[in-house]
Design a binder for these strands. Sequence first.
DNA 1: AATGTGCACAACCGCAGTGCG
DNA 2: GCGCACTGCGGTTGTGCACAT
Length: 260
Amino acid sequence: MVRAPCCEKMGLKRGSWTPEEDQILVAYIRQHGHGNWRALPKQAGLLRCGKSCRLRWVNYLRPDIKRGNFTKEEEETIISLHEAYGNRWSAIATKLPGRTDNEIKNVWHTHLKKLVSPSMPSTPVKKKKKNKKSSEPITAMPPDTGSENTGCRFMSVSQSPCDFSSCATDSSTEWGEISDGGKEGSFCSEKFSEIDESFWLEEWSMDDRAASVSFTGLAIPPSPSIGEQLDLLGASDSCDEDFWLRVFMGAGDLQELSPI
DNA sequence: AATGTGCACAACCGCAGTGCG
DNA sequence: GCGCACTGCGGTTGTGCACAT
């Protein structure tokens, strides 16, 4: 079957995402969900193809994504699951909540493959995890927390992941067991343990705001455009952590976020 | 201090699967 | 049943950073 190229239109942006684009995408999905990836960028005002938006969201912006180094247990799990599933990364990812197939794939190719393959060189010296600049802008982390052991994205602020995420597949996940000690884990664990399967299924299936209120406890006001909201929130200062603190803590003008 | 090398990870590409008219 | 549109997945690539020399 002939498929249309993903970014067939000239003028669509490619390459790394800017903090501004992240903000727009997050704000849009937060408010509207992602019913149609193809239409999403146009509606959100992004010069990206839907595929790119989806990838960015799924692999990076999703609030339930666990950041930081893989734990020993996770690595062992990946190895054993790889024996069972082969290169079916998405299947493996479902067994590792908070980890994306892309992330698992990367870890496998850069590290784990060498561990399990006798023909490969022994384990390379692990370098310190990088502080990738692009990883920082929208992470609402306290400045002194650093980029390592980031744990659940966005989770370090009082915004509940329940308000926002879409893709958790295993609601019984012990979110407290995040990488490297899980300093922030207790929060995640507490919150996520209260979420049942129906939430994850229903949260993003809604198109109307009433549904959002019922599932998240949020009162979403008649919405200005994303751009207006971002302006309202001072999003023009794209790298401003305070912006995201306002967004996720609900302390800003956007809306009143009540904790679960 | 400058340069080279390898690693980690985000992002892209293209195919497969699925739903719908 | 067919063709199209769309999403999801796996393979691959590009880039930036850390470490080594």
